[in-house]
Each structure stands twice: as C-alpha cells, then as structure tokens.
Amino acid sequence: MSKKIETLFIFSFLVLFTLATLYPALNIIGISLRTDDAFQSRSLALWTSESSFRSYVTLFLKTDFLTWMKNSFLVSFVVTLTGVVLASTSGYALSRFNFMGRRAVLSSLLMTQMFPATMLLLPFFILLAKLKLINSYLGLIIIYSSTALPFCIWQMKGYYDTIPDALEEAARIDGCSRFSAFTKVILPVSAPALVITALFSFMASWSEYVVAAIVLQDPGLYTLPLGLKSFQASLSTQWGLYAAGAVVVSIPVMILFISLSRFLVSGLTVGSVKG
C-alpha cells in the first residue's frame, strides 16, 4: 500500500512539473497564433476561430528576422567550434600532463565561474572598446567563448579523467603519435562530453541577450534575442510577432538536442578495459 502511495506521490509531482514546464511553451505558441489583441486571453486553446499564421508570415516577410537568424547562426557556430576545439584540447592537456601551474590553471578557470555575468559587463565593454571590437561579431564571439570555455574545459577534463591511460598507450604502441592517439582513439570515446560541450557553447551564444545588447549597436548586426527585443517598443509591443519569433528561435535548439541526444549515452568505454 505504502508503495502505491509513494508512486502516486512521485507521479503527481512529475505531472505538476511537466505542466509547469509545458504551460509557458503552449502559451507562447497560442499567442503566436492569435491576433495581437488576444494577448491577455486566459484561454488555453491553441487554435481558436481568431487564430492564423499571420504573425509568422509577417515575421519572415516584413521584418529582418532572417538576417538576425543568419547573424545568430554565424556567431553561435563560431563559438561552438571554438568551444569544442579549445575545450577538447586544453581539457586533454589538463587531464593527462603534469606541468607547472596545472593546478593554478584549473583553480582559476573555476574561479571565473564564480562571478555573475552582469558584473563582468563593464570590464568587457571597456576591454572591447579599447580593442575597437564594439559593434563587431569578433568581440561578441570572444566574450561568449571566454565565458563558456571554463565550464567546457572542466567537463572535458573530467571526462578524460575517466578514460584509462592504457587506451592511448595502446594506440601509441600501435603506431600513433601522441596527437593522433588523441584524435583517433580518445576523441571518438569522448563523444558524449563533446556533445555536451557543443550544446553548452551553442546555447551560451544562441539565446544570450545582455552581452549582445552592449556589444552590438548596429541593427544590421543584431542577433535573434536583440531582434526579438526590438519588437518591444515603449508604447506598444507586437506580442504576436514576439511570440512567433520566440517559437522559431527555439526550433534549431530542439533539432540540435534531438539530433545530438543519441551521442549522450553512458558507458562508451565499456568493454575497453577490465571494469
């Protein structure tokens, strides 16, 4: 009996949180399909007699949404690539080599995570202004990469620590150089960690608003979050467009998650060494 009550309790808890998660998502889809006036509606119906895809059509045809999307893709792609390349290599060095300053590097990487991002805005702005990187993607990419990297390096290092040294030693005896043992044997085994790194780097740049708002001032350079914010004027906000934009913005992230989730499996090293 107590087991049944426990199961009931667990399921009620899960249902509650699922609803709490789904409600905003469904709500925003509903808003994107209604006319602007229906923003305050309390109806949960996704499709009403008033509904149409008008907001989506306007979004793609009458705004700069596609330009913002292109900009966001460009920035996120470069940040993801930088994150994966730098985190996978530096994480490996920190995991496998014992060099002077290794512990200091690891601690300082961890320390950077202790500051809230907003606290770093002013120093970032001054730094970029001095480097004349305000209003450039390079400035934005540098900031996104530098804020995402410490986490990515730590988690790559943590994953490499779980891979036995014997694996790359076997590869080296089989004829690999240190680098090719890394690329041919260690990297394929590290797929789950690489996926997490890629997703984290992508997410850190794709949906970021605050930093983008101080770095990018030219509307032609806007990324998606900045573009969406521009629908919000001081007197009126185009909620339909805003919601349609938000829905479209979340689609690439969902595709990325679903397509990469097959790599997120545990136990890739199973069978490699005696467990």
């Binding site: 036995p164 014997a166 030693e169 076997a170 590869a171 005896i173 085994v189 199973v270 060494v273």
Partner: peptide
C-alpha cells in the same frame, strides 16, 4: 610507435 614492439595490457585496452 617506432620501437617495433607490441604490448598486451593487463586490462586489455581495446578501442571501445
């Protein structure tokens, strides 16, 4: 890689 020796490890060390 250039010593022309092959080694069998205690824990197999197969490429998983």
């Amino acid at each position: 890689s250039k010593r022309e020796v092959a080694m069998v490890f205690q824990n197999y060390a197969l490429y998983p």
